[in-house]
Design a protein around this nucleic acid. Structure first.
Ligand SMILES: [Mn+2]
Ligand SMILES: [Mn+2]
Ligand SMILES: [Mn+2]
Ligand SMILES: [Mn+2]
Lengths: 221, 221
DNA sequence: AACAAAATTTAGGAATACCTAAATTTTATG
DNA sequence: CATAAAATTTAGGTATTCCTAAATTTTGTT
């Protein structure tokens, strides 16, 4: 029953899931950029994924790809591994939230289902990773997420940071230094319509954040 | 400074180390058998390892291989990873000694030096893995081992089990059921010269062990 | 020493997953 | 709507690492 995929295949499926999850289309170029692989290589690979038996993606030339049932299953399996590993690295080995991504990126492909179960149980079956992102359940369903990007908030709106969708070490360290971490209460004070800057109060501090930052922070209200 | 090797390369170097460590020669066939790869594939690979810059093995046709300084370093790095991981899996995730090998076999190739240091520190820098095998030090020296194979002992000799050199799940479970684990005190009661069977007292039990078993158990006296 | 068996290497090939350069298709714009 | 720009695919390769079949070399035995 359990299919074994290559590391490449798993990274493609995971990336396709993450692109389409956010509403973006999983185009050749988008995949090439996220995976740091040339566009022609991506075309070749998605053809292979599309003609696998069973097919892992649906593909029509020049139209990008979507995951099939099988492809989505495989993607969620890898994402579950990744996020459980991140949580585990933070909780048991003292990694900080900006250090875990790279390590999990490699480990996610080699741990057994037994390992997955053991770390999940050891942590009491957490539902979110250190960045606040939802961990797919053991039966590979992604729980519903109800948060709003900070970039969509306007003055006088407030809430709590639910998750930060970023892997970049420097950005994560910067956000942490400002107290912009999951659980933090924030309130929008001002909005500049032309540059999309938001003035945000977090704790005692007030900071001005550009769209590059506000689009990656998700708020529960 | 740090070189990155492929998983295949690391498994070859580790296997060559383990064969030569025990005095056996790392012949094409021995490698093929241990790695479960065909003999022609092994010939091809050792040629590549020999012509790498810097060379990882010394190779003369029909004579097998030995590790160069560089090759030995790389082998010890992988072995350190493997044995630290085995210890970590047992101590923090409740794996038993017969379950850890497979998992460590895959993880050993993907963990960072940071991960290695963190688990070593978390365990208080252990010197032996769950099978009693020595863990190479952080500066990649293999500590000296002073144990004797049980197969070399004769009646009235006794000692303590230092390590069990085996990866086979069934054998390890069998040995554990007999109390033949590191730290156990044993005494040789009888020897059958023709079949090399040893009658050994361990705890309250007395068991007869063949060469297949006694050659894998190492005793400190 | 000659021959058979065993070990090893050579030859030829396959699968995976990348790449660059060039051609094609889609899309955006004046 | 024609054409330039952008996106995508096709064509042709490379690097790894594995395979089987056949040839060669070494080893062991009369
Ligand atoms: Mn990955
Ligand atoms: Mn994360
Ligand atoms: Mn391995
Ligand atoms: Mn071990």
């Amino acid at each position: 029953m359990k299919k074994k995929f290559t590391i490449s295949t798993e990274d493609y499926l995971k990336t396709i899931y993450e692109l389409t999850e956010n509403g973006e289309s999983a185009s050749t170029n988008a995949l090439a950029q996220k995976l740091k692989i040339s566009a022609p290589s991506v075309t070749g690979m998605i053809k292979k994924l599309a003609s696998a038996k069973p097919a892992l993606v649906e593909y029509q030339k020049h139209q990008g790809v979507t995951l099939t049932r099988e492809g989505k299953r495989a993607a969620l399996e890898v994402i579950r591994h990744h996020r459980l590993l991140e949580a585990w690295l933070v909780q048991t080995l003292g990694y900080s939230w900006d250090e875990v991504h790279e390590e999990a990126e490699r480990l996610e492909h080699v741990i057994s289902e037994d390992f997955e179960q053991r770390i999940a149980a050891a942590m009491g079956h957490p539902t979110r990773d250190p960045h606040g992102e939802l961990i797919p359940t053991a039966d590979l369903k992604m729980p519903p997420e109800d948060s709003t990007p900070l970039s969509a908030l306007r003055p006088e709106q407030s809430g709590t940071i639910q998750c930060v969708k970023a892997a970049d070490t420097d950005l994560l360290r910067y956000l942490e230094s400002l107290g912009l971490i999951p659980g933090a209460a924030i309130e929008v004070k001002d909005y500049s319509p032309f540059d999309h800057n938001l003035t945000v109060k977090v704790g005692r501090k007030t900071v001005v954040l550009g769209l590059n930052v506000t689009s990656k922070i998700f708020i529960a209200m």
